[in-house]
């Protein structure tokens, strides 16, 4: 099947340029540094020095759920930045270098081309996130106390939806702009703008994708999946699908115009 061939090409490419190795490694680092640095904060401050003799540091005891959310916060900032940077050229770069033309000269459907790109990118991001979250979860339970396994799986499920959305935003701008730099800028700007809008109109936008972290944090405390979390997850999935369809349409238009 054509679609499988395209997907395979993407996966092999991600393997050859080592993305399948370094992206998961970085995600694991991001996730396990939080519980470790939080746990050893007194030692770190001690080693750095500068505190007057006899200072007593009273670090608050963090519940394990909060520590896992710290790791997640790393994914929300640096992780998202990384995803945008590594995907900024996935279509835009191929167009610039002429590879896209080579592929699209053949009777390749635009839908197949975009969705294969999208899935390949999401598989990479998902594997990195899965390993990172597992690392963060492992350290959190060892250093700060037990967390129910369900917390792991729900975080995996719902946060993956948010990451899929981020991937889709990048793919969408990839279909519009030819310059990877512009794709990265537009993606980051969109995500920041969405988070600002969600903060300002938070009372109306209960189910904005940006709220997923907040509801996950609430889930850690209450140990139940709230209706809001499910609704936010569904909204995010819906927006992802709409954006993906829009990407195909934009791409078709742009290619036919050329």
């Amino acid at each position: 099947m054509q679609w499988m061939t395209l997907l395979k090409k993407e996966l092999i490419e991600n393997w050859r340029n080592r993305k399948f190795i370094w992206v998961p490694l970085v995600f694991i680092l991001l996730a396990i540094m939080e519980p470790l640095s939080t746990y050893y904060m007194p030692e770190i401050l001690d080693a750095v020095g500068g505190l007057p003799e006899g200072t007593v540091l009273d670090m608050p005891e963090l519940p394990p759920g909060d520590v896992l959310m710290l790791s997640l916060a790393q994914f929300s900032s640096l992780g998202v930045l990384l995803i945008v940077l590594l995907s900024m050229g996935t279509i835009a770069g191929e167009r610039k270098s002429g590879v896209a033309e080579l592929i699209l000269v053949k009777p390749v459907s635009y839908t197949n081309y975009i969705t294969a790109k999208w899935l390949a990118l999401f598989i990479l991001v998902f594997i990195a996130f899965l390993l990172g979250l597992a690392g963060g979860f492992y350290y959190t339970t060892i250093l700060f106390g037990e967390l129910p396994m369900s917390a792991f799986f729900y975080t995996l499920l719902f946060y993956s939806l948010w990451l899929a959305f981020v991937v889709t935003i990048s793919i969408f701008y990839n279909t519009i702009f030819n310059s990877p730099g512009l794709v990265a800028f537009a993606s980051i700007a969109t995500i920041i703008l969405m988070s600002v809008i969600t903060q300002v109109f938070g009372h109306v936008l209960d189910w904005s994708p940006n709220q997923i972290s907040a509801y996950l944090s609430q889930m850690m405390v209450e140990e139940t999946v709230s209706k809001d979390l499910i609704a936010t997850g569904l909204t995010t999935a819906g927006m992802t699908i709409i954006l993906l369809v829009l990407s195909v349409i934009m791409f078709k238009r742009k290619e036919l115009a050329n």
Partner: peptide, 15 residues
Amino acid sequence: MIAPLFVIQGLLLIF
């Protein structure tokens, strides 16, 4: 406990 941190950093460097 901290060793994995250095191992992963080392792997990144090597790759």
